[in-house]
């Protein structure tokens, strides 16, 4: 090892040590837990702990609620990612338009929900979604729509939470997109305009290739975020009605922290990890194909 290498290791050692301590060791321990039947009985007496191999995984796959949670999470991701990214991009494009005045003010206002507390805003949104007194139903009523029991109907609970989540998080990607849009070459844009390209043509062939890498990053982060959605259903509906908003992470929280079945909960965590990893690999492949990476 050269002196330079030694110095490099020395400088990175503290960070590496922390990563090992707070990331690698707990992950390894969680994986070890996932092949045991660690439960409240093991907390009472260690001799009740058994090695169960893949038993937790087999158990999970035959638990209807786990499949339900997977389905709910998939629905959150499939609807939520386009909703959140679409809103961010649309708002960023609007804000990027030269005719918009007071841009910094708009940016601050639209970014504000992102930095507010989930619990506080969830309480407000619960009032907005109220079937009887909620502003949303009042507005719908004004245009002749019958009241919807947003958070009390298993069919509308996920869309309702997604509306809240989109409102809450679109500001972040909006700022990222605004930065990316400012890098779109204006001379190309003008050339396209002179060549007679319409609004869609210019977006498709000038804007999109320029912001492609940013879009990919936003998609990867959003997919990972939506697959781990927990706080919003927890504060809005407690996983209800009829477990229609119980997500994989919610299921894991209940199993692990509420009922102390840490073996089972670790198995869920491991499955979730594999899912996110697989999806990210697919997204990177797609990104490579379009040369965004």
């Amino acid at each position: 090892m050269t002196r330079q290498e030694r110095t490099a290791w020395l400088f990175s050692a503290p960070v590496l040590a922390i990563i090992v301590l707070v990331f690698i060791v707990p992950t390894a321990l969680a994986m070890a837990l996932s092949v045991t039947d660690y439960s409240i009985y093991a907390l009472a007496d260690w001799s009740n702990l058994r090695f169960v191999g893949l038993g937790n995984f087999a158990d999970l796959l035959s638990t209807p609620l786990f499949w339900r949670a997977l389905g709910n999470t998939a629905l959150f991701a499939v609807l939520g990612v386009p909703m959140a990214i679409g809103t961010s991009l649309a708002v960023a494009l609007l804000l990027n338009d030269v005719t918009v005045h007071w841009k910094p003010l708009w940016r601050v206002l639209l970014f504000a929900p992102y930095v507010t507390s989930v619990v506080a805003t969830a309480v407000v949104w619960r009032f907005l979604f109220n079937e009887r007194f909620g502003l949303i139903n009042r507005a719908l009523n004004a245009v002749g729509v019958t009241p919807i029991d947003w958070l009390g109907n298993p069919a509308t609970s996920i869309p309702a939470i997604l509306i809240f989540v989109t409102w809450k998080i679109f500001g972040y990607n909006m700022i990222v997109f605004t930065a990316a849009l400012s890098a779109v070459p204006q001379d190309l844009m003008e050339a396209a305009r002179l060549d007679g390209a319409g609004l869609w043509g210019r977006f498709r062939h000038v804007t999109l290739p320029a912001i492609g890498p940013t879009l990919l990053l936003a998609a990867v982060m959003s997919v990972a975020g939506f697959l781990q959605i927990f706080a919003e259903p927890y504060v809005m509906t407690l996983g209800g009605p009829a477990q229609s908003t119980t997500t994989v992470l919610y299921f894991m929280f209940d199993e692990g922290f509420k009922w102390w079945n840490l073996g089972q909960a670790s198995a869920v965590a491991f499955i979730l990890f594999l899912m996110i990893l697989a999806l990210t690999i697919v997204q990177t492949r797609i990104g490579r194909r379009y040369e965004w990476l």
Binding site: V123, R126, L151, G152, M236, T237, L238, P241
Partner: peptide, 9 residues
């Protein structure tokens, strides 16, 4: 009412 605790604030 078919209501959850989160709905009856």
């Amino acid at each position: 009412p078919r209501a959850l605790s989160t709905e009856v604030q």
